[in-house]
Write a protein that binds this DNA or RNA. Structure first.
Lengths: 289, 289
DNA sequence: TCGAATTTGCGCATATCTGCACAATAATAT
DNA sequence: ATATTATTGTGCAGATATGCGCAAATTCGA
């Protein structure tokens, strides 16, 4: 089997992840020149250009992307090992990163952050707002709030509650006949989401006047009078500018999962944050089944 | 996440696998002193004794074993990456290692090795005879012949044939009533194997006069007149000293799988060896289903 | 019982790598 | 436009790691 320097690969992954030599250098705690030299060494050893060196940034070549894909398993293993070492050393983890969608992060978690800080002033909680699900196996976060059941076997997943949805619209909508309603929905890239499929079946032939990938933007548009929108109950019910509209078809709810790694969970701060999140979810989004 | 030097881990894994500083040093292509120092560095960074330094050998501590377990995924990833790099570079792989059980290796594969060498003189084929299934993910072999379906998802597995079994005994056995037969079987550690379970149901109350973990030893014992034994057809039929005995219960057969990694298979020599093995199996152990 | 072959441990000269400082370039904000 | 900030590239001195040689210890075989 071909041998290569694992340290070079570590630098390459940091670069691919950080996006710049400087960023990778900061993450690794070394000088940017060192990262540059190790990447050059890896390229020489493999006889491939891995990155395009640009004046102000670097971009992975095709081969670089391919290498990144192939190294995914190794990186997962290294992150897992890092978690184990953390747990074994009883590392004083004081910073816990939570990954969540924008809507969940800002409307569900953020309002309770003061209470959490009061109870756990020693823990710095970071909300990593990510459009797509965070890559726990890349070490981007310690905890994640997901709306789909995690499939990765090594993960510790806890079913925390159910996110109920409702159809909301401007106050006048309740009195108007449903045939005159306009609608607001996700854009095309979210066609696969259950909620979006439900909305499409409800809309029928009526117009969809605004689309956005950002749920909060949809909310604002609805509050401005643009049309009806499907929102989580914990968001729609709290907005005085919107009223809940009657629905013919039952609105499917989404399970809420809290996921982390077993080794991470052994760290008390991570467990504390997980308990905190479970409490929030249980309060605002209790399980329905 | 805790950061650590991946190169140190590489040295540690080589040491754990090689069993000695010198062996690891040879495998890594460095001096033994370097391995020693890197292990010391890793121990210092982790603040744990990983190996007992003995005058003539090293032995992993409990923590070392634990670390080895936790690093398994990372090692798998690195091996996989190495395979990819081999395939990408079109590495001139001329040595292909095949892992197989002793019986399969010596009686099924070995007799055809001259023919293979005639057709592919450029390929050095190594038969790694391993009692248990070889650890492909540790890079111990490029190909493996297994009698159970591989569960690892990343593997490329090919169903090559079926190993049919038969009950064999010394020539005189055919004329003697079955109630007087004695039997030969695996020892206790193989109780879970399908063949052994079948044998036990056939034996009933009749005596088992010899047990061995080595199938070939069982064969020799049977040929010496000791009793009846369950053997693969390709072994039993080829032995003039044994006759096939009538069986009441149908003898279950075992599927024969050829497994490797996709990236390895892209190397022509590996593909050639796999085709060679598939041909042997198809000839001597055709599929039954 | 004795000798040969491995293996680990240690010190030293050398080779390699790293960090730092500075220059150049491009994106961004004022 | 202009200043500011952040990034990459390069040369150099110091720090670090590596390989080599030798000694000590132990196992294996004769």
């Amino acid at each position: 089997m071909r041998k290569f320097d694992w340290q070079d690969l570590q630098h390459f992954l940091a670069l691919a992840h950080g996006g710049s030599l400087s960023g990778a250098a900061r993450a690794l705690g070394v000088d940017h020149a060192t990262v540059s030299r190790r990447i050059a060494a890896l390229e020489a050893a493999l006889d491939v250009k891995l990155v395009h060196r640009l004046p102000r940034s670097v971009r992975l070549t095709r081969e670089g992307e391919a290498l990144l894909d192939r190294a995914a398993l190794a990186e997962r293993g290294m992150v897992q090992l890092g978690h184990y070492l953390d747990a074994r050393a009883g590392a004083a983890t004081t910073e816990v990163r939570v990954s969540a969608s924008p809507a969940v992060a800002t409307r569900l978690v953020a309002p309770s952050l003061p209470a959490f800080h009061r109870d756990h002033p020693e823990i710095t909680l970071t909300l990593a707002v990510t459009p797509e699900i965070a890559q726990l196996d890349r070490g981007e976060a310690e905890l994640a709030i997901r709306l789909v059941e995690p499939t990765e076997g090594e993960l510790l997943a806890r079913r925390a509650g159910s996110m109920a949805f409702g159809l909301y619209g401007p106050p006048g909508y309740a009195a108007r006949p449903g045939a005159e309603w306009s609608f607001i929905g996700y854009d095309d890239t979210y066609e696969h989401v259950t909620q979006q499929q439900w909305l499409r079946s409800v809309v029928g032939n009526r117009p969809v006047v605004f689309r956005s990938s950002d749920l909060l933007a949809q909310q604002e548009a609805a509050a401005a009078g643009l049309g009806a929108v499907s929102l989580p109950r914990f968001i729609g019910d709290a907005d005085d500018r919107l009223v809940r509209l009657p629905q013919q078809q039952p609105h499917p709810s989404a399970p809420i999962w809290l996921v982390t790694y077993p080794d991470l969970f052994r760290a008390p701060p991570v467990a504390a944050v997980m308990a905190f999140l479970a409490g929030i979810v249980a309060e605002h989004c209790p399980r329905e089944d």
